[in-house]
C-alpha cells in the first residue's frame, strides 16, 4: 500500500498552550488511485503530508509510506516518493536541466543515468527545449511544471502534491491535470491537497474533506455528494419586496418568507440564498412569479458539500 495512516495526531506546544492540528486521522491510499485532501486553510492538510513524509514527528499514530514505517525508515521510503511542494524551491543557480540532474543526485542517481531522460522529463512538463533556460526566465506555471518534472526523476510509486495549481492560470492548470491523469493511468499513485473543488472533482478517484484536523467526509466525489447533500441547488439573488413581508427586501427577505416551505434547506450568504432540494420544480415555478429575483439552477457539487461541512466563515 503506498500510504497508510492510522490515528495520526499532531500537537504543537505543551501543557495548557498545546494545540492539536491533526486530531486522529485515518487514511489508506490504494495503488494507482488519485486521492485528494480537501480543506480550508489551517485544516491540517500540509501537516498531514509533512508527517507522512517523515519531515516532522507525529505526536501519536502509525504511518507506513511505501510499506515502510515512518519516521523510522522515512529516508528509505522517500526514495520511492516524489514531492511537489507548495512553495517554489527550484534551484535559481542552475538551468532547467541542471535542476533535474542535481536533484536526481540526491536520490543517488548518477548523471549518466538521468541525462538521457532530461528531454523526456522536460517534454512531459511541456518545457521542450528549455534545457539551458535559467529559472528566473520561467513563468510561475513553467516553474510548477518543472517542479513536477523534478518530482519524477526517481520514477516514484507515490507522487505527493501540495496545492499543485494554486496561483496558476487556467491553461497551466489544465496541462497539469492532464499530466496527472496520465501518471495515474500509468500506475502512479497520487496524493494531492487542494482547496479547488473542481480540481478534486475532476482528478480524484477518492477524496477526504478535512477541517480542524479531522476527516469530515470520505469517498469518491459522487459518493460524498450523494451522502452529504441534496442533489439540486437553486441560487436566488436580486430584488424582492412583498406587501405582506415583515420588512427588508432582497433574496434574504424572500428566503425568510418562502424558502422553508419550498426547499429542504436554505443557506444565506450575503445577498444570495442557496436552496437545497430533492425536487426543484415547485421552487422554480414559484420563483418564476417573482419578477425581481434571478435564479441559477444547478446540480449540487463538491463545493456545496465542502461549505456545508466546513461553514461559510472566512479562514485566514
Amino acid at each position: 500500500m503506498p500510504l497508510e495512516i492510522s490515528g495520526l495526531v499532531k500537537r504543537y506546544g505543551r501543557g495548557a498552550d498545546a494545540r492539536e492540528v491533526v486530531r486522529g486521522l485515518d487514511l489508506k491510499l490504494q495503488r494507482g488511485e488519485c486521492f485528494a485532501l480537501l480543506g480550508p486553510n489551517g485544516a491540517g492538510k500540509t501537516t498531514t503530508l509533512r508527517c507522512a513524509l517523515g519531515l516532522t514527528e507525529a505526536s501519536a499514530g502509525r504511518i507506513r509510506l511505501c510499506g515502510l514505517p515512518v519516521p523510522g525508515q522515512a529516508r528509505e521510503a522517500r526514495a520511492r516518493v516524489g514531492v511537489v511542494p507548495q512553495m517554489d524551491s527550484l534551484d535559481p543557480d542552475f538551468t532547467c536541466a541542471e535542476n533535474l540532474i542535481v536533484f536526481a543526485g540526491y536520490f543517488g542517481i548518477h548523471e549518466r543515468e538521468i541525462r538521457p531522460r532530461v528531454p523526456e522529463l522536460l517534454a512531459f512538463a511541456g518545457l521542450e527545449g528549455k534545457e539551458t533556460a535559467r529559472i528566473q526566465s520561467l513563468s510561475g506555471g513553467m516553474k510548477r511544471r518543472l517542479t513536477l518534472a523534478r518530482a519524477l526523476v526517481n520514477r516514484p510509486e507515490l507522487l505527493v502534491l501540495d496545492e499543485p495549481t494554486t496561483g496558476l492560470d487556467p491553461q497551466a492548470r489544465h496541462l497539469i491535470w492532464e499530466r496527472l491523469r496520465r501518471l495515474t493511468a500509468e500506475g502512479t499513485t497520487i496524493l494531492l491537497t487542494t482547496h479547488f473543488m473542481d480540481e478534486a472533482e475532476r482528478l480524484a478517484h477518492r477524496l477526504a474533506i478535512l477541517d480542524t484536523g479531522r476527516i469530515l467526509a470520505q469517498g469518491s466525489p459522487r459518493e460524498v455528494i450523494a451522502a452529504h447533500i441534496e442533489p439540486q441547488v437553486v441560487e436566488v439573488f436580486g430584488d424582492w419586496t412583498e406587501a405582506e413581508s415583515a420588512g427588508g427586501s432582497g433574496a434574504a427577505a424572500w428566503a425568510a418568507a418562502h424558502a422553508g416551505a419550498l426547499s429542504r434547506r436554505c443557506e444565506i450568504s450575503g445577498e444570495t440564498a442557496f436552496c437545497y432540494t430533492d425536487d426543484a420544480a415547485p421552487l422554480l415555478a414559484h420563483l418564476a412569479r417573482q419578477p425581481g429575483l434571478r435564479t441559477l439552477h444547478r446540480p449540487a457539487n463538491l463545493e456545496d458539500v465542502f461549505l456545508k461541512l466546513t461553514g461559510r466563515e472566512l479562514r485566514d
Binding site: R78, A79, P85, S89, Y106
Partner: peptide, 14 residues
C-alpha cells in the same frame, strides 16, 4: 530564501 534545504529533504536525505 530559496528553500533549497526543504527541496532536498523531500529526497532521501535527512
Amino acid at each position: 530564501v530559496q528553500k533549497t534545504w526543504e527541496a532536498i529533504m523531500n529526497a532521501p536525505i535527512a
